[in-house]
Amino acid sequence: MEPTVAAFDRHALRATRSRRDGWRDTWRGYRTAARLGWRVEANWADPILFLTYSVAKPLAGALILVVMLEVVSGGGADEYRAFIVVGSALWSFVIAGLSGLAMSVLDDRERYRMLKYLYISPTSLAVLLLGRGTARFAMGGIGAAVTLAVGVLFLGVPFDPAVMDVPLLLASMALGLSGVIALGVVFAAVVLQTRQDSWSYPEAVAGALFLLVGAVFPLAVLPMPVQALGLVTPLTWWVAAVREALFPDAVSSIAGPGSLYTRLTGVTEPDRWVLLICLLATTVLVTLGAMLTFRVSERRAKDRGLIDQTTGT
């Protein structure tokens, strides 16, 4: 017994643990939660059903929009088709990001009744929820990739790898996904306060955000105050930057005649640096907001005993 206790003491309970140990612990916590999340998400079905689920939803979402385009334009408007396909492909990330963390809260609180144990563990609850949500995020990625591939291969989206702006794509994806995760944290904070039946809320929020960020139509068609809201959302800049990276000739979702952006800047199409700087700025803003929201929600949940509540109706 003696050596085990000593080893345990030496590695885990030392009072003078360094910051590096803390990071290592956080990483370990995240990794474990991510592995658990993957097992929870993926062990329920055979691979074919799993793939169907991951792909069918985003693909159907994109098809709805493509058919809407077809019934009006009658097969023309290739540029707009690319516009729609990119927007809906990225949207599967948004839905996955928003629902991943939120569903972890609901699942672990109401179904597995483990949230209280996660909460009292030394690893931050946000980190653990992030880990749990990673699997969904990965599935969102599969959905996005397949939607883009189907768009290019079967829906006539004009994609030319030679003109693709890879650095912009990588940078915007990194920043954009951080923004999505931050929004996911905000949403996890929200469902920490709400009842079990709120499992459908993430999609409702994602659907509403659809309106604001120029995912499937240019912001210019929206009223000015709504455009202003869209411009402070990182998703708007993310979608525009990815679209710019993949299809440099695509219609801008941000600028153009009738848009607030053009009215304010006089520019008809923001360049890649503007897109990246605005994406960075709004992502930082949302991340700070997310951290604050989660902290407030966590405190309120603790104050009102919501961490281990069950609320089914």
Binding site: R195, Q196, Q309, T310, T311, G312, T313
Partner: peptide
């Protein structure tokens, strides 16, 4: 037994 609806 833990059944029931917590909100009720």
């Amino acid at each position: 037994e833990q059944s029931g609806y917590g909100l009720l």
